[in-house]
Amino acid sequence: MAIKLLTFGQITEIIGQSESTVNAMDSDALKAQLIMQFPGLKDLQFAIAVNKYVINENTGLKDGDTVALLPPFSGG
């Protein structure tokens, strides 16, 4: 199962690339897996969007889905 992962801002800095392919059953599993791999993510807040909709609870993922991780920016 291939999920396209898009990241923004500080999250890209931590992961090292803004676009990658990952495998996960659902958004919680994906988050846990990423935090395990990149512990720096643990201290960040970010919104998760699945196929361009921000999710507020664990969401199942299927082959071909796109998940975006959006941290808030404060700069102005």
Binding site: L6, S18, K52, V54, N56, A68, L70
Partner: peptide, 23 residues
């Protein structure tokens, strides 16, 4: 909606927000 824009690759990415009652 939130539109993200990256000046380095000119990429726009738009996501939709819904009210979030369970956070």
């Amino acid at each position: 909606k939130i539109i993200s824009y990256n000046v380095l690759n000119n990429r726009f990415y738009e996501v939709e927000i819904v009210p979030n009652e369970n956070m």
